[in-house]
Simulated assay, not measured.
Amino acid sequence: MDPEERSEDVLLFAYVDGELDEDQRRRVEELLTRDPNARQRVAQLRELNTLLKAAYQKDGNETA
């Protein structure tokens, strides 16, 4: 994975986690309109977040 892909992944992780400011969020959403691979990655990250939250709630009895 090259540095550009890693940088994009960091942005996508932050996007999924709701940690971007408005300008960054808008740029990611523009990327998602034109890049099917980015859309797929966001879908995967959302699924991963769902699985992690479910695992923590089940095993750790934590609520987030």
Rank of each mutant, 00 (worst) to 15 (best):
M1R: 04
M1I: 11
D2P: 02
P3R: 12
P3F: 12
E4G: 03
E4T: 06
E4C: 07
R6F: 05
S7K: 14
E8A: 15
E8S: 13
V10C: 03
F13K: 07
A14C: 08
A14V: 12
Y15I: 03
G18Q: 02
E19L: 10
E19S: 04
L20C: 01
L20E: 00
L20F: 04
D21C: 03
E22M: 04
D23N: 07
D23L: 09
D23M: 13
Q24C: 02
Q24N: 06
Q24W: 00
Q24P: 05
R25H: 00
R26T: 05
R26L: 00
R27T: 14
V28A: 04
V28W: 05
E29R: 11
E29Y: 06
E30H: 04
E30V: 03
L31G: 05
L32F: 07
R34H: 13
D35L: 11
P36F: 15
P36W: 14
P36I: 13
N37D: 13
A38V: 01
R39Q: 00
Q40D: 04
R41S: 06
V42W: 03
A43H: 06
A43S: 04
Q44G: 01
Q44D: 07
L45N: 02
L45A: 01
R46E: 01
E47R: 09
E47M: 07
L48C: 04
L48D: 00
N49L: 11
N49W: 08
T50W: 09
T50L: 15
L51Y: 13
L51K: 08
L51Q: 13
L51H: 08
L51F: 11
K53D: 09
A54E: 14
A54L: 10
A54N: 15
A54R: 13
A55N: 11
A55D: 05
A55M: 10
Y56V: 09
Y56E: 09
Y56A: 13
K58P: 06
K58N: 10
D59G: 05
D59T: 08
D59S: 08
G60A: 15
G60W: 15
N61V: 14
E62N: 10
T63W: 14
T63V: 14
T63E: 12
A64K: 15
